[in-house]
Amino acid sequence: MSEDPYEIEQFKKILEDSKILSCVQCGKCTAGCPAGRQSRIRIRELIHLAQDGVDLKDDPSLWYCTTCYNCQERCPKGVDTTEAVIYLRNRAVRKGDHNFPPLHVTAIKSLRDKGDGFPLSPEVEKIRSIIGLPIRPDDLAHDEKYLKDFTKLIDELGILKLVENKDGEQ
């Protein structure tokens, strides 16, 4: 367990890959953040707290970032701010965060079972056929062998476990 990279001390090292130590707290990130205008996510504050090693796993604002990369693109110090948020989410998921949205779990399950986050519905099948597309696309979702392999691959990766545990706790 001491090797767990997501323990706060080790995790600080991971975050340093996003160059958060270069941050001078200028606020350019928060200023241009479309989500920050409509919710209480503050990228600058997140980076500041992350620099200090504050455990952010329960901060619900992590899930308001639309990953538009405005902040990362404009950061004068080259901090990969959006990447840092993604790392923080990864950690929150592992460390028992209660804030991640239930619909995400649905999407993950749908991907495992059907190969698509948005699976095909009968209504759309109808539209497809009317406009002259094959009723079902020639994709993984509609090929039994590929889908089986795919499900196996996801299970190997273990992503579902991360969220299922969560479900159990809830």
Binding site: C26, T30, A31, C33, G36, R37, R42, R44, E45
Partner: peptide
């Protein structure tokens, strides 16, 4: 668009 970093508040 600028953040008042002391108030932790984005402003337009």
């Amino acid at each position: 668009r600028v953040e008042d970093t002391f108030a932790n508040e984005p402003k337009a």
